[in-house]
Design a protein around this nucleic acid. Structure first.
Lengths: 565, 565
DNA sequence: AAGAACACGTGACCC
DNA sequence: TGGGTCACGTGTTCT
């Protein structure tokens, strides 16, 4: 009850502008004084959407990339290393399919700090790894763009990732330095289709999954990002449900908000065309709306838009994205919030205390002038930035056991260890071999595995006893898994994982072609194993409706596993 | 004013037991049901101390490792992967130099979850990376042990780390599995000298830095850990200053608290012998004491000890460490807190709302029964765990530009990228060499750079710069970009990006097949645009050596861009 | 129903 | 002074 009442205020609160964490600043090079700041530059933000399978809920997140003008963002000031130097939007980016503009963040080239570590900045992982979150319906259109910087949205649902990762979808490649990283992306379009740049492919659209498009300003709001997928997170979207549709997402969102009060939400549109958001859980309607963590972020963004101008701001050709605007909104919203305070849904009681600028919250203190509001925004920015980074990290780590923060960190650590070990092994191997020496100048760069030339050890892996069962990676021999879902209409989702074998890629493609499936959105990775994630494929008009089992059978056959699962 | 009053309650609050995040659970194997949970097992917790150069403040943190008995910890329940299965203390662990017992966490061998990822668990990074935080005086005796698990304390002061990192102190080695990891540490001794197990050495004792020993139960309390070093963090210690000295740290801390009220603190001891804590900033005395983030953690821990039994609990030979005890304390403290609530220093206003179990905080709600207190503790645990992981991550990353969370994450991401690049380079190098193949079974383990056995090649690296413009993402209509590199031997790298069109995927695959290229490592994504990144493909033996330009031409042709770039 | 996870809004701190 | 960062305690949700 109270919560609901609270929720309303939150609605307003949501209006507050979100920070655009992701904004990269053009000008900020100068701003970055910390020499050490390593730029993550090359990293493109990873935004993805997830859709929950079982639930209608959507979560849409889009990251807006501000043009150079507004660019300065948190990072500029703060110490965030990740900031990519320049952000540029190319005007042409809008998605043809959808009218929805998609915001993206561009990873600027590494303008800033030439940190020691930054040597490899040019390398862009984003290409290499793309994690896709499955969209429930066909909405998911991850825009595969490098540019997006920090933000990325990923469904948080554990099941989703787990399955994906477990299967060894991890892929990443190392390999290239992409010059491309530096170059870049044009306009951002916010499409309802949820196109996102998904740098890393991660995913397997497995089970639930939230789906998010959002990220407006910074990419994702504080909470919103990928984690939202988590079922709870998804809920928030419920309120927003309509967002995705043809009209600007934001507009829709605004509409939703208006409508939201009614609660449970109806999911607005058909997924197919506009990105729409279904509420994953009908939940308690508004209440959830208000407080939900990430969700609130979404709301906030919506608010931002709504308060300002819904859709158009985001249509962001380039310069439009207004970080500043956002800020203004924020301030306004903040004010609103203050007014509204007292409710503050989840945070609840706190609100009264300091939030009220002049409001004289209930609290005794009231010490700080009116600043709290500012602080609030700053904190919000900070949270968002942190979340964005966290999700980015997640996107880079191929195996994520769970989607919770601690697990992401843990997995990242473990992954780091693995990589180090691997490097060590490679080094050993290399040393054991004759030539080597001159070849790898790069190696020196890294503090780790210090290339100590002297080491010619023979480590040779005696260390590793066999025992390593290495479940994860072991692709080969791994059981083949194929999931096929037929979405309404002729959309098809396919997830397949199996051991790699020569020609598998081609045979699979041919099999799909033979089925009359046009692959529209997919990520295929081939490393230890073969992972195919088709988020959207469409059957030819001519054909008969395909049965998922048929598709599965065909794929199994093409994979050489005749009938075996 | 108010704050001070609040602070008092906080003092009490501090008494609340901290969670022992780090505790590893012996028994919890069963508890880990999540298959995906990757254990970080091998990761030893990283505890380090930092001392501020210029400031006297210390922060001491010690992680106590519970014996198996109490072991079940957050992780058990929660999903933290990082938890290492068993913790064992070996009695002999005390530092000879100092009498001060040091708590450590042991990274158990990976008893728990045989997660997929965990393959390499045995590998212990801790050895590899050792980051040391400089102690101001000579105190710093980082115990270099693998065993410590999650907790690690590190100074947060930016200057500190920055300098350290800049100087290239990063080092890590990869390489070994330490059996020691599994074995372990015996008793924990809590020495004032601040011995810590510092798994990774990081550090350079540069400027400020806080120094911490603490971590009692879980390792570090929520906030306290390494971050504390940050000057602000350090402050908290001020209050605690005395802790380190001969008496149990906790006892001292308790004493300090008692004394603290006076405020500014005197730093207690001589560093040399007992670990003492100086307040980095005289700060405003109590007030700071109460609310400071990390610091508060420290207080809490102190509280825990104080409330419970100060020193002895921690002397922890083995079983003593009481997680349970802590919990009990927590509860008690929680209760106390409730009573005290209304002040709740920083959190301030919130307190009233729900915290009061029955208190009927000012807030309207009062919905939740009395549970809030529990929630509070859980949240505290969670925060601590998260912090611990974060710090652990930091400890693993050699270059940390700044100590703030976002930077840590960003640096980690960048580092990951670097490692991947490095691996790729090594792989290339390795391939170029003749032998290799059989040598590295390990490689298979990793998702990355899958050990494609076939690879015998030589890198010649005729890189083909040809216009690498390829911005990653070019969407439709965007210029098609194709990069082809022929590595020596028959390995080929291809990066291609162009607009998506139906059938492109298939035609491209067929084209590659026609070229006799076996795609071994690749990521293909299809969203707005078509992006093909082949990190490794190999030419058939039969074929003539392909010319990059030929490949490019074929691909362009298949993409329907005849000759256009 | 207890626990975990999250986002939030605060107060405090630092630069 | 003001923005950034942190820890905290909350409320909410999900499991």
């Amino acid at each position: 009850m109270l919560s609901r009442t609270n929720s309303m205020p939150w609605m307003d609160r949501n209006k507050e502008v979100e920070e655009t964490n992701l904004w990269t600043q053009n000008n900020n090079n100068g701003g970055m004084e910390n020499k050490d700041d390593a730029e993550l530059g090359a990293l493109s933000s990873f935004k993805s959407m997830i859709e929950a399978e079982n639930e209608a809920g959507w979560y849409m997140s889009v990251t807006a990339t501000p043009t150079a003008a507004n660019s300065h963002e948190i990072d500029m000031h703060g110490g965030s290393h990740l900031d990519l130097g320049n952000i540029s939007f190319s005007p042409k980016f809008t998605d043809a399919d959808n009218n929805h503009p998609v915001l993206q963040q561009v990873d600027s080239s590494a303008s800033c700090s030439p940190t020691s570590a930054s040597v490899l900045n040019s390398l862009d992982l984003s290409h290499q790894l793309n994690y896709f979150l499955p969209l429930k319906s066909t909405l998911m259109n991850p825009i595969h763009r490098n540019l997006l910087e920090e933000t990325f949205d990923l469904g948080r649902d554990h099941r989703f990732l787990e399955s994906a990762f477990n299967q060894g979808t991890g892929m990443l490649n190392n390999g290239f330095n992409d010059l491309s990283t530096q170059s870049q992306m044009g306009t951002l379009s916010w499409s309802s289709n949820n196109q996102f740049s998904t740098n890393n492919l991660l995913q397997q659209p497995q089970s639930s999954g939230g789906f998010g498009v959002m990220g407006f300003g910074e990419g994702s709001m504080d909470g919103n990002p990928l984690l939202l997928n988590r079922s709870k997170i998804l809920k928030p979207l419920d309120g927003f449900a309509s967002i995705g549709s043809q009209p600007t997402l934001f507009q829709k969102r605004a509409a939703l908000r208006k409508n939201l009060d009614s609660g449970s939400v109806s999911n607005l549109g058909a997924l197919g065309l506009g990105g729409e958001i279904n509420h994953s859980r009908s939940s308690t309607s508004l209440e959830g709306y208000d407080k939900k963590g990430e969700f609130s972020d979404v709301n906030e963004r919506k608010r931002k838009n709504s308060s300002g101008d819904d859709g158009e701001d985001f249509s962001i050709d380039g310069s439009n994205l207004n970080y500043d605007t956002d800020d203004l909104f924020l301030e306004n919203s903040t004010i609103n919030k203050v007014e509204e305070s007292g409710k503050n849904g989840g945070s609840g009681s706190n609100v009264n205390s300091s939030v009220t600028c002049g409001g004289g919250g209930g609290d005794h203190k009231g010490k700080k002038k009116g600043f709290p509001a500012k602080n609030l925004m700053a904190e919000r920015r900070r949270r968002k930035k942190l979340n964005d980074r966290l999700y980015l990290l997640r996107s880079v780590v191929p195996k994520i056991s769970k989607m919770d923060r601690a697990s992401i960190l843990g997995d990242a650590i473990e992954y780091l260890k693995e990589l180090l070990q691997k490097i060590n092994d490679l080094h050993s191997e290399l040393e054991s071999t004759p030539s080597s020496s001159s070849l790898s100048p790069l190696l020196n760069v890294y503090p780790l595995t210090p290339t100590t030339p002297g080491l010619s050890c023979r480590i040779k892996e005696e260390l590793y006893p066999s025992a390593f069962a290495s479940p994860l990676s072991s692709p080969v021999g791994q059981s083949t898994r194929i999931e096929v879902r037929i979405r309404e209409g002729r959309a098809v989702n396919i997830h397949m994982f199996c051991g790699r074998r020569p020609g598998l890629l081609l045979s699979t493609m041919m099999a799909l072609d033979n089925l009359g499936l046009d692959i529209q959105q997919a990520v295929i990775s081939c490393f230890n194993g073969f992972a195919l994630d088709i988020f959207r494929a469409e059957q030819c008009e001519d054909g008969q409706d395909l049965n998922p089992d048929q598709i599965k059978a065909v794929l199994l056959d093409s994979a050489g596993f005749h009938g075996t699962v």
